[in-house]
Design a protein around this nucleic acid. Structure first.
Lengths: 203, 203
DNA sequence: CCATCACTGAAACAGTCGTTTCAGTGATGG
DNA sequence: CCATCACTGAAACGACTGTTTCAGTGATGG
């Protein structure tokens, strides 16, 4: 019995991509094999064969969504080891990315996985929320001076920026009010600036 | 055929309370009639009779959760028509409430309904996210000077405070790190103070 | 040529879902 | 006394769930 399960394979990747775009449209909450199979031009039999189980499928989809997330994070990294353009500048770029309408399905999917992992502490979702929090705190930390990175105040800074971004995102997803949420985020970044910048290092 | 559906009734309220506490423990995502009936000492038959349908039951549970939310909001209102103690003081009180361990199940349930309503635009969840955003923005607005309440900058202020609270809450629910998230919220409130207060009115 | 390989279709499995049907309780009040 | 009321138990309905069984494809390579 081969049961590849998680082994990469041309066919598997192809179906994963189609299932991923299906999940982006329909969500993960009531994802079901037969409708998914019909939409991706396959069959429940094949999906189970290629992914081992439905849990395996969901895990693969979550991992696939995470690939998109990590791609964004890499894009945001300063690249070189230097301290980059500052926490506020990075936050502004992140918010720009978050407000792009084409990213809305991905963000909704992410929110779905996030809260689901809060309830189902086991299963495929487990640890998803925790993982994304750590991912983002890590990447935000690369934007602040290295001497702040380890201090509690520095970690609080990153936590705060992340909270603003996530909270504003939740608002945006619910209301669609880009102007109001963007104004809130920028108000925060303006207020954050004098805190982040050490005296003498501004501009 | 009576089919009370949403008519109040002693028995209905009793079962609603029990179903509510069950939902707080197990979540709403995979709520199912038979296990719920077994846990509440009733039967699927009775639940359907008293709530009309499963959607009616979920709607009742969501409304019940909203009662708890609105109770908190009323508690936060200054009471008299005056401007209260300021936006930052109110936010600090809200955060205190959010971090209370006993409120964690309610907050998780709320998060569940929130993102669910982002995906299922119809069904029992519809509009839940939007409603809570409006509720909270409304109550936060009562804490700021009346001349700021209508300006875009004032609305951005409330949006920002709400975003910080919600974002930090998401972080807290995922990581359980009360210290770090509280530090972030308080850092924000400290930075918010000089913005909110008009020059000359500070202290 | 034949074995092995990754992949697939059709059908059935046992289980759960929300809901319905039928048949009752026991209490209320005219 | 009897009708009406809110409520309930038992069982079944059809639809759906993830998963399995059996039986194949067609291509690969020794």
């Amino acid at each position: 019995m081969p049961t590849p399960g998680s082994t990469p394979s041309a066919r598997r990747n192809e179906l994963l991509e189609r299932a991923y775009s299906y999940a982006l449209q329909h969500g993960l909450a009531d994802l079901s094999l037969r409708p998914l199979a019909a939409a991706t031009g396959s069959s429940p039999r094949v999906l189970l064969y290629l992914f081992g189980s439905k849990d395996g499928l969901v895990r693969a989809l979550l991992a696939r969504a995470r690939v998109d997330e990590l791609a964004l994070l890499d894009e945001l990294r300063p690249g070189d080891g230097r301290s980059g353009a500052g926490l506020d500048a990075m936050a502004a770029r992140v918010w720009e990315w978050l407000t792009a309408p084409s990213h809305r399905p991905l963000l909704t999917l992410w929110a779905e996985g996030y809260v689901r992992s809060l309830v189902d502490t086991d299963g495929p979702w487990a640890g998803f929320a925790r993982a994304t929090v750590d991912d983002w705190l890590g990447v935000l930390a690369t934007a602040q001076p290295s001497d702040q990175r380890t201090t509690p105040a520095g970690r609080a800074q990153c936590t705060l920026v992340l909270a603003v971004l996530r909270g504003a995102l939740l608002d945006l997803l619910a209301t669609g009010d880009v102007d109001r949420t963007t104004a809130a985020v920028h108000a925060q970044l303006a207020a954050l600036d004098p805190i982040t910048a050490k005296p003498g290092t501004s501009a």
